[in-house]
Lab assay of single mutants.
Amino acid sequence: AKPPKTVTVKVEVTNADGETQTRTVTLTNLPKDLKPGDTVTLPETGQTARIVEITP
């Protein structure tokens, strides 16, 4: 079996106070056609994050 493909992405997350924070997260099994501006759900927090940058 192939190991899951991990991708490092820079995302913007809005916290409970309405502040936008930029975080770098490593995600696995992202859709192939994901692009900056799309939103993903962070598995560890369940927060919705907007992708700023994808590092191949």
Rank of each mutant, 00 (worst) to 15 (best):
R50A: 02
V7P: 02
K32F: 14
D17P: 03
R50I: 15
R23T: 07
T26W: 07
T6Q: 12
G37H: 01
T26I: 12
V52T: 04
A49E: 00
L42I: 10
A49F: 05
P31D: 14
V52K: 04
T22M: 14
E53H: 06
R23M: 15
D38M: 09
D33A: 08
T22K: 04
T14H: 06
D17S: 11
A1P: 12
E19P: 03
V13T: 06
E12W: 12
P31K: 12
K5I: 13
L34V: 11
N29V: 06
A1V: 13
E44K: 07
Q21V: 15
L42S: 01
Q21F: 15
T14W: 12
V9R: 00
R50P: 00
L34I: 12
L42V: 04
L42C: 07
D17L: 10
D38H: 03
P43Y: 05
L34Y: 06
P3F: 09
P43E: 07
T41N: 07
L42Y: 02
K5V: 13
V25K: 01
T41L: 12
T39M: 14
V9T: 01
K10Y: 06
T20R: 10
D17Q: 12
T39W: 15
R23K: 11
K10P: 00
P4A: 13
T28I: 11
V9C: 08
T6C: 09
G18P: 01
E19Y: 14
T14R: 09
L30P: 15
T8V: 11
T39N: 07
E19I: 13
V9F: 06
N29T: 07
T39C: 08
A1K: 08
T26M: 09
T8P: 01
E53P: 01
E19L: 12
E53M: 08
T6G: 12
K5T: 13
V7K: 04
N15I: 06
T39K: 07
E44S: 09
V11S: 00
G37P: 00
E19K: 13
A49K: 00
T48S: 10
V11A: 02
T14N: 05
K35G: 05
T45L: 06
D17W: 12
P3K: 06
V9E: 00
T14G: 03
T22N: 04
G37W: 02
G18T: 01
T26V: 12
E53N: 05
T45V: 04
K35E: 04
P3Q: 07
V11D: 00
K35M: 08
T48L: 14
V52N: 01
T55Y: 15
P56G: 12
V7D: 03
I51E: 00
V7H: 09
N15E: 06
E19N: 10
G46K: 03
R23V: 14
K10C: 06
E12N: 04
T26P: 02
D17E: 11
G37I: 00
G18H: 02
Q47C: 05
P31S: 13
T39E: 09
P4L: 11
T48Q: 11
I51S: 00
L34K: 04
D38A: 04
V40Y: 11
T41K: 08
G46D: 04
K35C: 05
G37F: 02
L27Y: 06
D38G: 03
P3R: 04
N29M: 08
E19H: 11
K32L: 13
T55P: 07
V13E: 02
T22H: 08
T45F: 05
T26Q: 10
D38C: 03
V13P: 00
T55V: 15
L42K: 00
L34A: 14
G18C: 03
P4E: 10
T8F: 11
T20K: 11
T48Y: 06
P4N: 12
T45N: 07
Q21L: 13
V52A: 02
R50H: 04
P43Q: 05
N29F: 09
A1H: 13
V40G: 00
I51W: 00
V13F: 15
I54V: 08
N15L: 12
V25H: 03
G37Q: 01
P56C: 08
T48H: 07
K5W: 14
T6R: 13
P31L: 13
K5H: 13
D33S: 08
T26C: 05
P43D: 07
V9K: 00
E44F: 09
G37D: 02
T14D: 04
P36F: 04
K10E: 03
K32G: 13
L34T: 07
V9S: 00
T45C: 04
A49Q: 00
V7M: 15
T24R: 05
T20M: 10
K10Q: 05
Q47Y: 05
R23G: 02
G46F: 04
K5G: 09
T20Q: 06
L27E: 01
Q47I: 07
L34M: 08
T6F: 13
R50S: 04
